[in-house]
Design a protein around this nucleic acid. Structure first.
Lengths: 343, 343
DNA sequence: CTGAAAGCGCTTACAG
DNA sequence: CTGAAAGCGCTTACAG
């Protein structure tokens, strides 16, 4: 059995003082050359930059931050209990956040918040380790937002909240769901069923609004026979599908692709052909449905772009710039075989 | 349109100097009371603690770190291109890492590395922002490990590498896959097919080894007709399934649950009943297969525990403690309906 | 244009 | 047991 031990050789890094000494100038001057703040002659500036390039010096961001009362860190909360559908959303969002952050020399720290346990968030705040935080799409009642407000820590929600005084940026679920539903109506469907996820998530409420917007626009009745909310277990989905078949729905719209996957499996078990007997579409497309046959019609959002934008909004806000209270991003609709017209 | 602007009221935090002044003692003493290092009378220690509790003072970890040449941060690399199967692994691993880190007052920063682009990792290292890094399960050729070695930055791999001088902790895939395969043999199967994922991932190679260990142990031939590697597209999986049916396989073992899901869908389309006509099992169980009918036999790993352990190994290594070069975690086998004996 | 000095909020020999 | 002082690696008025 091999054993490892870190010898921790001192490995001293070069500092601003070393540069000053080597170049026979003051630390102040070196600092100015690097930051570009304050008057400095082009000549000495170039000498410093040349030395830095040659020695591969990198400023210690921590020390810089300490002097400036900044940390150059933001936190991203991740839910402790995350279901499969949300994972691609987080994964891609995270990706976008990281990229936008590093472009401005910021780093992102992870803080888990499980249910109403804000322990880790409080710790992070108490430790003075971040300049702001990004809350990711979350429950209707959000304890975290309340805490951050009370602490006066800048934050933005990557998602939507009805609370208009919290900064938020989100995909335009409502418009997307409306338009997708409209397209399904245009192609001849009149009895479009909805299999919805848990209404504890505001995103699910918004999606439903989009669906209802479309019905209203087409003067179709909003029928209880066609709308099934809170289908958060396979049993509920199965029940919903059965009722929809009974109710002669010509199309089923699923609120997310986990539900959609379940619906497709049930339909397959029941030998109900898609799209011939009934069409199917999903309000959110992740890789879950990727290889399904038939390919399924869906809404596509760019979660990475969402993350990136959320991050830059936060950074601008931290900097003291003006930012819009709510920002909405676009979407794309992909019509595929699962809603192909067959008559 | 509402506009937000951060007014940045000074919001000055209480410091060690404030406490010293209030209590008429030196900063040194306050520091000692908090850290517990150095001799200090129980009485003054209690006075300080009482004051801290009353004022809700929290030390500035950044300043502390600067003085101690530590950051109290570790980095976690996340792959820029992550497929669906890996997401639960990362998500849970992250969770475990965060918890173990915060238990020791450490925070975890995210750094994305896409392909061979180490830009973000280099930046993080250059900025002196972390004491060490956790590399997550990765490709066979890992540029990141090389970079970290050259920089003498402590790191551990959450996964397995054949490079024995990198610290690693992983689930015991090999033993798990061996045992699962053995169980399938014991229950009467003699022609167990394997549908494998991309061999660029070392985890897939290890899983295959476990499978082959079991065949060897049972003196079954390791047949090319039954082993299909690199099935990283739906087409390849489909082809593999067809060949396996032709070859009269009595059971199909899938290397991960995305492959398994594909296999099950194909079988369902072909109207091949599971487990009656052919049994199916998976080497890794995430939520992907959760609601499948029949329930599928699988190996279960505790990825959160893996993350937590990986993190504490790194922290111990950073601290200068001795750690084992390679640590393996256990697994669980759940036999379900998809491998039920029907004869 | 440049520098000496104080400061960010902590720690840690060193001396008493 | 306690404190004055120097230091971690930067920045930033202030003065020249």
């Amino acid at each position: 059995m091999e054993i490892f031990r870190n010898d921790r050789t001192e490995n001293r890094k070069i500092t601003i003082a070393d540069i000053a000494e080597a170049l026979q100038i003051s630390k102040t001057t070196v600092s100015r050359a690097i930051s570009g703040k304050g008057r400095i002659s082009e000549e000495t500036r170039e000498r410093v930059m040349a030395y830095i390039a040659a020695t591969d010096y990198k400023p210690n961001v921590i020390a810089k931050g300490l002097a400036q009362h900044k940390t150059y860190n933001i936190a991203l909360t991740i839910p402790g209990d995350c279901n499969l559908v949300d994972m691609p959303f987080f994964q891609n969002g995270m990706q976008g956040i990281c990229e936008a952050a590093s472009a401005q020399d910021y780093d992102v720290m992870l803080v888990t918040v499980t249910g109403d346990d804000l322990g880790n968030l409080e710790r992070m705040a108490a430790n003075h380790k971040v300049d702001g935080v990004i809350l990711s799409r979350s429950m209707v009642h959000d304890a975290a937002a309340g805490f951050l407000k009370s602490q006066q820590i800048p934050f933005v929600l990557m998602g939507t909240s009805k609370d208009r005084d919290i900064l938020q940026v989100d995909n335009d679920h409502r418009a997307g769901c409306r338009e997708l539903t409209e397209r399904l109506i245009q192609s001849g469907n009149t009895r479009i069923g909805l299999v919805g996820g848990s209404r504890t998530y505001v995103v699910n409420r918004i999606r439903q609004q989009g669906y209802e917007d479309a019905l209203r626009g087409a003067r179709l009745e909003r029928s209880g026979q066609l709308i099934f909310e809170d289908c958060d277990t396979p049993e509920k989905v199965e029940l919903a599908v059965e009722k929809l078949l009974e109710a002669q729905a010509d199309c089923i719209v699923c609120m997310d692709d986990a539900i959609c996957l379940a619906v497709l499996q049930i339909l397959s078990r029941k030998r109900v052909p898609v799209p011939e007997r009934i069409q199917v579409a999903s309000f959110y497309d992740s890789m879950l449905l990727l290889n399904n046959k038939p390919a399924v019609t869906s809404l596509i959002f760019d979660d990475k772009a969402l993350g990136a934008l959320t991050c830059s909004v936060l950074l601008r806000y931290i900097r003291g710039d003006e930012v819009k209270g709510r920002t909405l991003l676009g979407y794309e609709i992909i019509m595929r075989d699962s809603t192909r017209e067959t008559h």
